[in-house]
Protein backbone atom coordinates (compact mmCIF):
# COMPACT_ATOMS: atom_id res chain seq x y z
CA UNK A 1 0.00 0.00 0.00
CA UNK A 2 1.04 3.60 -0.59
CA UNK A 3 1.57 5.64 2.52
CA UNK A 4 -0.80 8.33 1.28
CA UNK A 5 -3.67 5.85 1.58
CA UNK A 6 -3.51 6.75 5.29
CA UNK A 7 -5.41 9.95 4.35
CA UNK A 8 -8.60 7.95 3.89
CA UNK A 9 -8.12 4.73 5.88
CA UNK A 10 -9.81 4.27 9.25
CA UNK A 11 -10.65 1.52 11.71
CA UNK A 12 -13.45 -0.60 10.20
CA UNK A 13 -15.06 -0.96 13.62
CA UNK A 14 -15.19 2.52 15.16
CA UNK A 15 -13.97 4.58 12.16
CA UNK A 16 -11.26 6.30 14.19
CA UNK A 17 -7.78 7.15 12.93
CA UNK A 18 -5.08 4.54 12.53
CA UNK A 19 -1.44 4.70 13.46
CA UNK A 20 0.99 3.24 10.94
CA UNK A 21 4.04 1.20 11.91
CA UNK A 22 6.19 0.10 9.00
CA UNK A 23 8.28 -3.07 9.16
CA UNK A 24 9.32 -3.25 5.52
CA UNK A 25 9.01 -0.81 2.66
CA UNK A 26 10.04 -0.43 -0.96
CA UNK A 27 10.18 3.32 -1.71
CA UNK A 28 6.68 4.67 -1.09
CA UNK A 29 5.17 1.19 -1.03
CA UNK A 30 4.63 -0.35 2.42
CA UNK A 31 5.03 -4.12 2.24
CA UNK A 32 4.63 -5.20 5.86
CA UNK A 33 3.64 -3.40 9.01
CA UNK A 34 0.66 -2.72 11.20
CA UNK A 35 -2.18 -0.25 11.49
CA UNK A 36 -3.37 0.34 15.04
CA UNK A 37 -6.62 2.07 15.90
CA UNK A 38 -5.92 5.13 18.04
CA UNK A 39 -9.26 4.64 19.79
CA UNK A 40 -9.92 0.91 20.34
CA UNK A 41 -6.34 -0.35 19.97
CA UNK A 42 -7.25 -3.05 17.43
CA UNK A 43 -4.23 -3.97 15.29
CA UNK A 44 -4.58 -4.57 11.54
CA UNK A 45 -1.63 -6.25 9.83
CA UNK A 46 -0.24 -5.20 6.44
CA UNK A 47 0.92 -8.32 4.59
CA UNK A 48 2.32 -8.53 1.05
CA UNK A 49 1.54 -4.84 0.63
CA UNK A 50 -2.18 -5.35 1.35
CA UNK A 51 -3.65 -4.16 4.65
CA UNK A 52 -5.93 -6.72 6.29
CA UNK A 53 -8.80 -4.52 7.43
CA UNK A 54 -11.23 -7.35 8.14
CA UNK A 55 -12.91 -7.01 11.52
CA UNK A 56 -11.28 -9.38 14.05
CA UNK A 57 -14.19 -11.85 14.03
CA UNK A 58 -13.75 -12.36 10.28
CA UNK A 59 -10.00 -12.71 10.37
CA UNK A 60 -9.71 -16.28 11.59
CA UNK A 61 -8.99 -18.98 9.07
CA UNK A 62 -12.22 -20.39 7.72
CA UNK A 63 -13.16 -24.04 7.47
CA UNK A 64 -12.46 -24.99 3.85
Amino acid sequence: MDEDLMDILCCPLDKHELELDVDERDDEEILTGTLTCTECGEVYPIEDGIPNMLPPDMREEAPA
Binding site: M1, D2, L5, I8, L9, P12, G49, I50, M58
Partner: peptide, 15 residues
Protein backbone atom coordinates in the same frame (compact mmCIF):
# COMPACT_ATOMS: atom_id res chain seq x y z
CA UNK B 1 -4.52 0.82 -7.59
CA UNK B 2 -4.58 0.36 -3.85
CA UNK B 3 -5.86 -2.96 -2.58
CA UNK B 4 -7.63 -3.52 0.71
CA UNK B 5 -8.60 -6.78 2.36
CA UNK B 6 -11.93 -5.80 3.88
CA UNK B 7 -15.54 -6.54 4.57
CA UNK B 8 -18.26 -4.71 2.63
CA UNK B 9 -20.38 -4.17 5.75
CA UNK B 10 -17.59 -2.58 7.83
CA UNK B 11 -15.62 -0.34 5.47
CA UNK B 12 -12.21 0.89 6.64
CA UNK B 13 -12.60 4.25 4.87
CA UNK B 14 -13.35 7.72 6.21
CA UNK B 15 -16.73 9.35 5.57
Amino acid sequence: GQLLHGNAATLPLDA
